[in-house]
Write a protein that binds this DNA or RNA. Structure first.
Length: 282
DNA sequence: GAAACGTGGTC
DNA sequence: TGACCAAGTTT
């Protein structure tokens, strides 16, 4: 797996030595539920503008939301800003290397804490993202897709497979993730390019089809999510506070529109001002 | 454990 | 054309 990775790993900016722990951390936030191709340009602009956590922490959170652009799930921008503030205040401006301290930062959960500790600091952690979970499900468990939510059995398996040596474990984590991203994908597998095809339990079992109900589709049209996105797009586009009427124009249904706006304010993504004006948080 | 949370590309 | 998918976290 690692030999395959040595040859086929993509040259991504957050994998270069100069990215540092902050670069790794920013990339992990942006890559949550978001394809690499969409992250690349935003990542470059972000690191150029805020090369250290303290640089971002010194800005209003609204600037982070604006720079987030159309990556989606803008609460991630807010949480990354909050994490940068915590790093500036509690960790002397350096991204912590301790797993528990990473986990305590806003927007960092089980996966991201392990990923930063492993990729940025070369530590030995089970890094279980959707790619790794799929690779393990197929190669080890012999099923086409992993369960909906990460299970104790998956964590146990991931720990058991982890190489003993720290640096090798970190390399292995990146390699297994890359294999899931490039070869053993959800859309389909390319066993002819897979370095562990000869040992893959799912392939050797004849690739039995996934059992159970199809995963719930994520409907989007007409949801509060879509309305929130439209409202926030108006605010991102304006450097000045915008009147209520500008927001009213992007969604016709007043009850849902008001609910979406209230939600954005409650989440801290929008700041209401006097006189019926709104803006990104200052 | 389910549901909410954006956006756009792909087959 | 529309459902599925993309390096998850929080409530």
């Amino acid at each position: 797996m690692i030999a395959w990775f040595d040859e086929h790993a993509r040259d991504l900016p957050w994998r270069r030595p100069e990215a540092g722990a902050w670069g790794v951390m920013v990339s992990e936030f942006m890559l949550q539920q978001t394809p690499v191709s969409r992250v690349l340009p935003v990542y470059e602009q972000w690191l150029a503008r805020w090369p250290r956590p303290a640089d971002l922490a010194a800005e209003p959170s609204g600037e982070a939301v604006r720079a987030w652009g159309r990556l989606g799930y803008p609460r991630r921008a807010l949480r990354l800003h909050g994490a940068a503030q915590a790093i500036a205040e509690r960790h002397g401006g350096d991204v912590p290397s301790d797993h528990a301290q990473l986990l305590a930062l806003p927007g960092i959960g089980e996966y991201t804490a392990a990923a930063v500790a492993s990729f940025a600091y070369g530590q030995r952690h089970a890094v279980l993202d959707t790619n790794v979970r799929r690779v393990f499900a197929r190669a080890s468990t012999g099923i086409q897709y992993p369960p909906t939510a990460t299970t104790a059995a998956e964590r146990k398996l991931a720990r058991a497979l982890l190489p003993d040596d720290d640096a090798t474990a970190a390399r292995w984590a990146a390699a297994s993730m890359e294999l899931g991203a490039l070869v053993c994908t959800a859309r389909g597998e390319d066993c002819g390019r897979c370095p562990i095809a000869a040992q893959c339990a799912w392939r050797l079992a004849g690739k039995p089809a996934h059992q159970g109900a199809a995963r719930r589709g994520q409907t989007y049209a007409g949801t509060d999510r879509q309305v929130r996105g439209k409202l926030l797009a108006v605010l991102r586009a304006s450097r000045e506070p915008v009147p209520q009427s500008a927001l009213d124009s992007v969604w016709h249904e007043p009850v849902q529109r008001a609910r979406a706006l209230d939600g954005l304010v409650a989440d801290g993504l929008v700041e209401p001002l006097d006189g019926g004006l709104y803006r990104l948080p200052g």
